[in-house]
Design a protein around this nucleic acid. Structure first.
Ligand SMILES: [Mn+2]
Ligand SMILES: [Mn+2]
Ligand SMILES: [Mn+2]
Ligand SMILES: [Mn+2]
Lengths: 220, 220
DNA sequence: ACAAATTTTTAGATTTGTCTAAATTTTAAT
DNA sequence: ATTAAAATTTAGACAAATCTAAAAATTTGT
């Protein structure tokens, strides 16, 4: 598999192509910063290789082999992200770009050894689950902060927006994964909320609360 | 720079293109498992990019920029090899293939952090020197074992042949870099020699002694 | 139901790196 | 100094991945 092919497979997976749901060439083209006509060409090629199901004018979905392939690439990506943060002191906003390259290194032994070195982590620095060697993984029980009711308490467990700007914003406000968070008050006017993060009071906009995942603690 | 361009530059360096000596397109083609006509095309392109000096029908040499580029790639290659051996328990015959891929990862921060994690190693697992961040490196004072006189004593410091078969042969005979070695007797007939490695007696063929580098200990 | 808007595909061209076969230049041999 | 052999370059073609512009199919609005 070429690097380009791998990137197509990964993108289709992230767009939901595993749920046997059809993904449009337009959606793929937008995500990959390319043109729909290029996607059509690649769709045919990957169908030929039994990685995609492709119905003309309808879209594509991943075959079982395609899903397996996607999970393998995602596993590598997320393990490398953990490695960069835990072993090389990268910050969580720096790792994605480098992991985009490292995920294409072809060596089963390499990634298994990295996994072992990291003591088989379950989640990457952004809270996303890491597929195991055989491809299974459990999505964490989580909700967007914006969905919590006043008074609810939880733990920050992930981010939806993984852009460097958002991650740096969280850093600046001392919000990190693992932190406790409680909703003090919700403002109807702009959907902002006042919260307590590890005891500190903060006012968070709707744009923040709709991009931060929380695991709610059952309060009684 | 593309991965292919980087591989050309690296190959030309290894063929001696730094000594302002001209390297033939044939030699490059053989080394890279490609055709001389392909090399000619690439030579023109890399000359355009100011990485090579190219004289038609004569050959190519590296410019200063080309040498700088080559050293940067070699630095990455060798650091990754050390990483694989020291941190992930790869054997020295397994690392080259993976390092061929890892050397093309583009991130200055990544390789500098790997360097730091390894505590700034001076040599790779095969005894080859690792260029520093600014490109300078000292070739070690070494000789081929075959050049030693009877009675001479030394330390194994490197290999000329880095093929997996040779490296595994050395493993099987418990010869490792850092081991002491003394020439007991040289056989005129087939140029083989009897040696003592860390106290053990071994008979080594000429093919072995012409591929093992030794640092001679001044014996008085 | 049918025209208009949108989406998707096809056709043909481009870039990168490669190849084969033919032409050119250099080197070696007499 | 010619000629033969070897090395090197040129010309033309090809596969991969991409693009633009035009054609075809689908979806939407009334
Ligand atoms: Mn990422
Ligand atoms: Mn991530
Ligand atoms: Mn190597
Ligand atoms: Mn090496």
């Amino acid at each position: 598999m070429t690097r380009t092919e791998e990137n197509y497979i990964k993108t289709i997976f992230h767009l939901g192509g595993n749920q046997s749901q059809l993904i449009s060439t337009n959606a793929i083209a937008e995500q990959m910063q390319t043109k729909p006509s290029s996607v059509t060409d690649m769709a045919k090629k990957l169908t030929e290789k039994n990685l995609l199901n492709y119905i003309r004018y309808q879209g594509v979905s991943l075959t079982d082999l395609g899903i397996k392939t996607a999970l393998s690439i995602i596993r590598k990506h997320r393990l490398w992200e953990v490695f960069l943060v835990k072993k090389l002191d990268f910050t969580w906003d720096e790792v994605h770009e480098v992991a985009e390259q490292l995920e294409h290194i072809k060596s089963e032994k390499l990634i298994d050894k990295i996994d072992e070195l990291l003591d088989f982590p379950k989640y990457d620095p952004h809270g996303d689950p890491i597929p195991s060697k055989n491809g299974d993984f459990q999505e964490r029980d989580k909700q967007l902060l914006s969905e919590l009711k006043t008074g609810n308490q939880g733990i920050c467990v992930g981010v939806k927006d993984t852009s460097a700007t958002f991650l740096k914003f969280l850093d600046k406000n001392n919000i990190a994964l693992g932190n406790s968070i409680q909703v003090i008050e919700k403002e109807d006017f702009d959907m902002s909320m006042r919260v307590k993060v590890e005891g500190r009071n903060l006012q968070l906009s709707n744009q923040v609360s709709t991009n931060l995942y929380v695991k709610v603690l059952e309060s009684n």
